[in-house]
Design a protein around this nucleic acid. Structure first.
Lengths: 341, 341
DNA sequence: CCTCATTCTTTTCGCGCGTAAAGTATTTTG
DNA sequence: CAAAATACTTTACGCGCGAAAAGAATGAGG
């Protein structure tokens, strides 16, 4: 590494013996220059640690290599996990991902999209808040910036939507629960944060009816993203009120189930499938902590990997040329049997 | 809102009736222009939705309004929570925070710092990986960029370090446990991710000796950031080996405790302080999920709020002028009594 | 060896803003 | 009300790069 500091591309071009426009071309796409010049540039890169000024680059390029990754609630490890997955794929594809969380607040989601617009991103991967999202703001954003929605759909918006086949989730777990014990009732939030909850409820109802059972839905009051607390508080209330007519409770999602397990514990109910157990509890998502609840939570695993891969692929396919029609890709869940049901 | 699009500051200055340099000054600091001109500019801002090009701004300013926020492992909701807190405070102070997670990988931590340097940040709030961090890389980074360390200290680096008084944590919980039952043994990772664990062990030993008890430390094998799994796997092994000589286990942190609770459950041990319970378990941190374990986890709450506030204040104080000596601020924890101990 | 397509160099312009200097207008001070 | 201080305008330049055009060098194919 030479000691002389390189101040700009002009100087770097000089020491590498290549003209500045060609060097510029190299940084834009190393494969676009001849093999021999590429080697000369990379030899110079070894000796001097020059990197193009990112602000000057982005100012003049119509399209940057920035990618926005927006999730609704980073404190939920599910979103942290999928964000990490998506982030890594963007880096591998040569882009610069930037992570944002709306922290459950619609106004913050709008602010993030507003701020993102200034970054002239090549594309955005957006997991919206859902019900609370400002549809018109997102619609406007999608018109300006290539955006792929994931996790939570907003009908008709974005280049594509990548998510889970929620009705299949419920079908799978209902089938399992009915096969191994009493038909489940369904525990959910009255006003769920996102549309996946509705699809799961419908999936539950359909699966129950197909098996000849009467669906039974228990709804919890409460707004916001503090699902565990809602599951615990309202679960306890429903238990006390004798609201559950079977010994099997299917929760709309794992976080609700985690709170409900706490309610069961505090109510003195032993959870599990053993003969000495009073109640079976199942969730949906395979939340990172589901393995560690007591008892470990039986659930349906989201295909994190397929969803993040598909979302990233879909975005870059659109960004790098091929404009296809809006597509919706839903991935199936996988039954994860643990002790709770 | 007028329909004519404003393309740049020149045009915006024209429609607001103010010269461009003055408008530029306004955007740099609205308080630096006369009240009357400020009103004229803000009146124009109402009519046209112009915003300065962020790339052009940052290119020419010696110091940007960017702030980097780096945490070691975003999938841990503790860090997600503190990141959210820090992020909001930066926004309130008029800065642009950008969130990064090293995802437990030292090479990624280095990459993040490298990428951050390009953003010419006004400052960086860094919670390092700890033991696995590349000290020399961080040292070099701190020389170039005003950096405040938090959560995990790296001796002597950064403008300041803001964290928890870990020995006090252990003292507090040891006192409580001894007061209410058998003296605890200490369950920790053999090669902990960060130095806080060492301080907690030392705090445990000191507190035990002060009370006239013999310290007993049980160490778990395993590397990395998958604390729950290590707590569960190695906790189960230690239980099976009869490694615990008392019925009270103090875990080095809540995530380890969460895994250990699972091990207890799977081993058929009833956890809690009732007469029918076989073991008491306590953690440290007040992890967001500690409230929802079964039984709910007794722990020491970190003062999230004070830590994030203090870290942000310390950074901006340094950035905005006053260069003080490196200071270390440690906040005390608060005992949170729940059912597990 | 010649032809033609690539690939490179040279030159020039522009992006949108920060910044500085010098002059003019406005406000404050005594 | 004059002098001084402050705030503004005008003009000009620079930041580091992208992009485009025209000509020179290079290399492949016949």
């Amino acid at each position: 590494m030479s000691s002389t500091k390189i101040r700009n591309m002009e100087e770097f071009a000089a020491v590498s013996g290549i003209s500045r426009p060609t060097v510029s071309k190299y940084f834009h796409d190393p494969g676009s220059v001849r093999q021999s010049t590429r080697q000369r540039i990379e030899a110079a890169l070894e000796r001097y640690d020059y990197r193009p000024n990112i602000f000057a680059m982005n100012q003049n390029r119509k399209l940057t290599k920035n990618v926005g990754v927006v999730v609704p609630y980073m404190v939920d490890p599910f979103f942290a996990e999928i964000a990490r997955n998506v982030e890594q794929r963007c880096i591998d594809a040569g882009y610069r991902p930037t992570l944002f969380s709306a922290h459950g607040e619609p106004s913050l989601e709008n602010d993030i999209l507003d701020g993102l617009r200034q970054l002239k991103p090549a594309g955005v991967l957006l997991a919206p808040l859902g019900r609370a999202s400002d549809r018109s703001a997102i619609e406007k954003f999608c018109r300006d910036v290539p955006t792929v929605l994931f996790d939570s759909e907003i009908q008709g918006l974005g280049l594509s939507f990548i998510g889970s086949d929620n009705p299949q989730f419920s079908r799978l777990i209902v089938d399992y629960l009915c096969r191994t014990g009493a038909p489940p009732c369904f525990f959910e939030m009255k006003t769920p944060a996102n549309p996946n909850a509705n699809k799961r409820r419908q999936g539950y109802i359909a699966a129950m009816e197909r098996l000849g059972h009467a669906p039974d839905i228990v709804q919890a009051d409460g707004e916001g993203w503090d699902f565990e607390e809602i599951g615990r508080r309202e679960g306890a209330r429903a238990l006390a009120a004798g609201r559950f007519t079977t010994d099997t409770v299917l929760c709309s999602n794992d976080r609700l189930a985690i709170g409900f397990l706490t309610a069961c514990y505090e109510g003195g109910l032993r959870v599990g499938r053993g003969p000495d157990c009073a109640i079976r509890v199942a969730g949906q998502d395979d939340h990172p902590f589901a393995r560690y609840t007591c008892p470990p939570l039986t659930t349906i695993a989201q295909d994190y990997d397929a969803i993040s891969r598909s979302a990233v692929e879909s975005l870059f396919a659109a960004v790098e040329g091929s404009t296809r029609a809006r597509e919706v890709r839903l991935f199936e869940g996988r039954l994860v049997m643990r002790e709770s049901a």
